[in-house]
Computed example of a mutant assay.
Amino acid sequence: MKLSTLALRTIPGAFILNSGIGKLRLNAESAAGLQDMAATGIPAVKNLPPQKFGKALAWGEIGVGAALLTPVVSNRLAGLALGGFSAGLLSMYFRNDAMTEADGVRPTQDGTALAKDTWLAAIAVALITSRKK
């Protein structure tokens, strides 16, 4: 694996894996808060009980992080997993008026944390389109 690919996969992979592991112990109130935020981008998640949503989110993050960190998973597959994950995050950003300025693109103070997830989308594109050498 090339050093550039290693950087593209290990840094976000470790971050996402750690985030998922941390969410395994979410209490109902915290899970409900995350669910409310997620519902701004993906309304269907509101149909799940908060605890079930929290577990699904945790295991989803663990799966994406593990895919990025596992060398036998192809760049394309790892990039697709990361792309789906970042699409969900960015849908919350773009569908929540409080996250963007009036132009609908630039982040507000509240939106800065989600706007950084554009980097994950860029990494996903780089992994998906990378060629084996």
Score class of each variant (00 low, 15 high):
residue 3 L to T: 10
residue 3 L to K: 07
residue 3 L to W: 06
residue 4 S to F: 05
residue 7 A to L: 15
residue 8 L to R: 09
residue 9 R to W: 05
residue 10 T to A: 12
residue 11 I to W: 04
residue 12 P to A: 10
residue 12 P to V: 05
residue 13 G to Q: 12
residue 13 G to V: 10
residue 15 F to G: 06
residue 15 F to S: 13
residue 16 I to L: 15
residue 16 I to K: 03
residue 17 L to A: 14
residue 17 L to E: 00
residue 17 L to S: 05
residue 18 N to E: 05
residue 21 I to A: 08
residue 21 I to C: 03
residue 23 K to R: 13
residue 30 S to Q: 13
residue 30 S to I: 05
residue 30 S to W: 07
residue 32 A to D: 11
residue 32 A to Y: 05
residue 33 G to D: 03
residue 35 Q to D: 03
residue 36 D to R: 08
residue 38 A to Q: 01
residue 40 T to K: 14
residue 41 G to S: 03
residue 42 I to K: 06
residue 44 A to W: 10
residue 44 A to Y: 09
residue 44 A to E: 11
residue 45 V to T: 11
residue 47 N to Q: 11
residue 47 N to V: 09
residue 48 L to Q: 06
residue 48 L to P: 00
residue 48 L to G: 00
residue 49 P to R: 02
residue 49 P to T: 06
residue 51 Q to P: 02
residue 53 F to P: 00
residue 55 K to H: 10
residue 60 G to H: 15
residue 61 E to F: 14
residue 61 E to Q: 15
residue 61 E to Y: 13
residue 62 I to Q: 02
residue 65 G to C: 14
residue 66 A to N: 13
residue 67 A to S: 15
residue 68 L to D: 00
residue 68 L to K: 00
residue 68 L to Q: 00
residue 69 L to H: 05
residue 70 T to P: 07
residue 70 T to I: 09
residue 72 V to R: 10
residue 72 V to T: 09
residue 75 N to E: 07
residue 77 L to Y: 09
residue 77 L to Q: 02
residue 78 A to E: 00
residue 78 A to F: 04
residue 79 G to H: 01
residue 81 A to L: 10
residue 81 A to E: 00
residue 82 L to E: 01
residue 83 G to D: 01
residue 84 G to H: 11
residue 84 G to S: 11
residue 84 G to N: 10
residue 86 S to N: 10
residue 86 S to L: 06
residue 88 G to A: 13
residue 88 G to R: 05
residue 88 G to M: 08
residue 89 L to P: 04
residue 91 S to A: 15
residue 92 M to G: 09
residue 94 F to W: 11
residue 98 A to R: 07
residue 98 A to D: 10
residue 101 E to C: 07
residue 101 E to S: 07
residue 102 A to H: 08
residue 102 A to I: 08
residue 105 V to E: 03
residue 105 V to P: 00
residue 105 V to I: 12
residue 107 P to C: 11
residue 107 P to K: 04
residue 108 T to N: 06
residue 111 G to C: 08
residue 112 T to R: 14
residue 113 A to D: 14
residue 113 A to C: 06
residue 113 A to S: 14
residue 114 L to W: 00
residue 116 K to C: 03
residue 117 D to M: 11
residue 119 W to E: 08
residue 119 W to T: 12
residue 121 A to D: 00
residue 121 A to C: 04
residue 122 A to K: 10
residue 124 A to I: 12
residue 125 V to N: 07
residue 126 A to F: 06
residue 130 S to P: 00
residue 130 S to W: 14
residue 131 R to M: 13
